[in-house]
Design a protein around this nucleic acid. Structure first.
Length: 573
DNA sequence: GCCGTTTTCGGCCCGACTGTTTTCAGTCG
């Protein structure tokens, strides 16, 4: 069994939870949590790193001790130290820590005084009113834990960015309508454009906090007010998402925006740099002693520690601060640079709109080209094309291209990669096309070796151009298929094949880490929508966000090129 | 347990809100 990075990280997080309950050295605990974060955000698999005998201590946050532990975990699937801890602190207690309102101290008290080891024990103790009698707990705390217990299963879900956008917009509009508020920004992971959002963090600039907070909690969608002070409040909406609002004066706007945008790791790194310069950064500003020397804008804060502005999409402490220090931040790609969409379906297979309507919509977006990529026959449920159906579409496109002005339709297909790595249609027809998008839609469960070789073989076909949704993952639903994506990237580079960033909200595939890895390897990429209707052509923005998080510049993405150049870059040899 | 343009020892980001307390601990972000 190959351990995945998330599983290794989970072991360190669990160890950290249990040691926290045992009141261990908080810095050691922080080191474990930090390592867990680093491990889960690495694009390269630690099992492979260990197999290659790589020096893990070169990774920031991983020292000799943790490196040793990782090796043990990879080899034995467990960590003896965790087993030791579990002999006096049951592992299940780390589950209780996930309940809102319960931290290490309270979990410890519940375990020591009431022998509570499970959510069921906890429910019963609450029913009997035992919890509120514990020292330091009280009636309200017991009630809060009772509520927390309800939500632990109900709301332990994360929201896809696309689903959150309209919610964030409606809250922004609602807050902006208040005349007490001079500006509003949705910060947090939303501003960093993460694919998954846990909660929303709003920042409002106003002279008086109380009026703003009172306005906020009266928002229609608010189901429950979790906390409410003079400058800060937390609510839960009917949709289940938690929303924080923080109110600050204009002089702190930049510092606050930086602080609430995160990520936490980015902020910690920034603050450490400030300390080296004998400065203190908090959400109110940059301070020298007691004197505020910056904070009105984010630029000001960065400048105070000799850094240029760092775009929110990069703020993960994945090297952006070091890059900024060397003045080597990427010039991130943006939507206006896209010249065409290279993955679209029509109602000839499983799309909603006709070819003509899709093309017209692409033209209205100002695109110079659009590739029509209906499915191939293997996907029977989509009424995928056989050779004759594709031929018919090719002829239709030829006719349309003769009539159309200002846009060119590229003849294409999303052809299935079959189990043996062959493509679902013969080369005799593929050679008539301008390009192919080749994708896996079946047999997701092959072994890593077989899956990797399947894709190698597909890429060996001279008519293979773009690998569609390369990892096959569906956010919150399906893991990427087991394959060695680093080797696949190397193979793509050797063969001059292209990788797709699929902009469908539940795919966003490649993810940010693979994008960055592909950029570092100087691979060619395209950003496509996989649109099944006219409205889905708008998904391009989501793909752009993902590319920005992956540090991509226009020069990394082929569909920022004009048509003639794009055609040249498509050529395999 | 990690890390180093002040360090191989001695630091480790910083503040708001709540509830249970009579001055602060616990939790959260």
């Amino acid at each position: 069994m190959k351990m995945h990075n998330t599983e290794i990280a989970a072991i360190f997080n669990k160890l950290a939870d249990l040691l926290e309950i045992e009141d261990e050295n908080p810095f050691r605990i922080r080191a474990y949590r930090n390592a867990a974060r680093v491990i889960s955000s690495m694009s390269k698999n630690f099992s492979d790193l260990v197999a290659e005998n790589a020096d893990l201590t070169e990774i920031p946050g991983i020292g000799e001790r943790i490196a040793e532990k990782i090796k043990v975990i990879v080899k034995t699937q467990e960590l003896p130290q965790l087993k030791d801890v579990e002999t006096h602190t049951p592992a299940i207690l780390s589950e209780l820590m996930k309940i809102e309102g319960l931290g290490p101290k309270r979990v410890k008290a519940l375990y020591n005084k009431l022998h509570i080891e499970s959510t069921k024990d906890l429910q019963e103790a609450i029913k009997k009113g035992k919890v509120q009698k514990l020292r330091g707990f009280g009636e309200k705390t017991q009630q809060k834990i009772k509520e927390g217990l309800k939500h632990v299963t109900e709301y332990v879900k994360h929201f896809k960015l696309y689903d959150i956008i309209p919610i964030a917009n409606s809250i922004t509009a609602y807050l902006k309508a208040s005349k007490n508020i001079s500006s509003v920004e949705c910060a947090g992971s939303y501003r960093r454009k993460k694919e998954i959002i846990g909660d929303l963090d709003f920042l409002a600039i106003a002279k008086k906090g109380t009026d703003v907070i009172n306005h906020f909690i009266q928002f229609d969608e608010v189901a429950e007010v979790l906390s409410k002070g003079t400058t800060r409040s937390t609510v839960r909406l009917h949709s289940g998402i938690q929303v924080d609002l923080r109110v600050l004066p204009p002089i702190s706007y930049g510092a606050a925006l930086l602080y609430f945008t995160g990520s936490k790791a980015h902020n910690i790194h920034i603050r450490k740099l400030a300390l080296q310069k004998k400065l203190k950064i908090n959400e109110y500003g940059v301070f020298k002693g007691n004197k505020q020397i910056a904070g009105k804008t984010e630029e000001e804060v960065y400048k105070s520690i000799n850094l240029p502005f760092i775009p929110p999409e990069l703020r993960e402490d994945h090297g952006e601060i070091e890059a900024a220090q060397k003045n080597k931040l990427p010039k991130l790609i943006n939507l206006s640079q896209i010249c065409g969409d290279l993955h679209c379906h029509t109602n000839a297979t499983d799309g909603h709109d006709s070819l003509e309507i899709m093309v017209e919509a692409a033209k209205n977006k100002g695109y110079e080209y659009i590739a029509i990529t209906d499915h191939s026959k293997h996907l029977a449920m989509t009424h995928g094309f056989d050779k004759n159906a594709l031929l018919k579409q090719i002829k239709l496109i030829d006719r349309l291209n003769n009539k159309l002005k200002n846009i060119t339709i590229l003849k294409s297909i999303e052809v299935d990669i079959l189990e043996d790595g062959s493509l679902d249609l013969p080369n005799s027809i593929l050679k008539e096309l301008d390009l192919t998008v080749c994708s896996i839609h079946s047999k997701f469960n092959l072994s890593s070796k077989k899956q990797t070789e399947r894709i190698f073989r597909a890429m060996d076909n001279p008519f293979f151009n773009i690998l569609g949704h390369p990892t096959g993952r569906l956010i919150n639903k399906r893991q990427p298929y087991d394959a060695n994506f680093e080797k696949i990237m190397e193979a793509a580079k050797e063969r001059n094949c292209i990788l797709e960033i699929n902009s469908q909200p539940e795919r966003l595939d490649f993810n940010d880490m693979y994008c960055k890895m592909a950029k570092d390897m100087q691979l060619k990429m395209v950003i496509s929508t996989d649109a099944h209707s006219v409205s889905e052509l708008d998904f391009m923005q989501l793909g752009i966000y993902q590319a920005q998080r992956g540090w991509l510049e226009a020069s990394d993405v082929l569909n920022t090129c004009r048509l003639s150049e794009f055609r040249n870059l498509l050529k395999r040899h």
